[in-house]
Simulated assay, not measured.
Amino acid sequence: MPNLNVYSVLVVLFLTCWAVMATKENDQIIKENNCETKMGLPCVLETFTAIFKTVSISNKCCSELLTFGKVCQSTLVKRTLENHLFKSLNPTTIIVKNIQT
């Protein structure tokens, strides 16, 4: 059960950060943090596959993801969820997978 409590706290913290980031436009946050230049396209695709599907992320892409940073990752996931193509996904599930990744 302690894992569930830690997990719940992480979800709450992530949602809080997400709400704060919502005050700015996602594109502005991406531009300000140079998110588009921090990670190579193959690792971006692999990371999003790990978040939006059930796939593991390689050590190489995991290293790039750490360099990418939480702000960039969270903003891009949020922007993706706002896209009408992804409206059928459960945002809570995606947030949990994002934290796990």
Rank of each mutant, 00 (worst) to 15 (best):
I57A: 15
L13C: 14
S74V: 02
T47P: 02
L10M: 10
N90A: 05
T67K: 15
L10W: 08
E64Q: 15
L4I: 05
S88Y: 07
T54P: 13
S74G: 12
N5I: 05
L15A: 15
T49G: 05
L81P: 14
Q73N: 08
T92G: 00
E82W: 01
E64P: 01
K87Y: 15
F14V: 02
S58Q: 03
K53H: 14
K24W: 13
V77L: 08
K97D: 08
V20T: 08
L45K: 15
M39Y: 08
K60C: 04
Y7S: 08
C17P: 00
T49L: 11
N90F: 05
V77H: 01
T93L: 11
I99V: 06
L45A: 06
T93R: 01
L76D: 01
G40T: 07
M39K: 05
K60N: 12
T47F: 04
T67S: 15
E36Q: 11
L4E: 09
I30Y: 03
P2S: 10
K87N: 14
P91R: 00
V71F: 06
V11K: 05
H84E: 11
L10F: 14
L4V: 00
K24Y: 14
K70D: 10
N5F: 00
T75P: 10
N3C: 03
Y7H: 02
T101G: 08
T54R: 09
S56Y: 02
I30R: 02
Q100E: 14
I57C: 14
K31D: 05
N98Y: 01
V20K: 13
P91M: 01
K60G: 09
S88H: 11
P42L: 07
E82M: 03
L13D: 15
N83L: 00
L85H: 14
L65A: 09
L81R: 07
V77K: 04
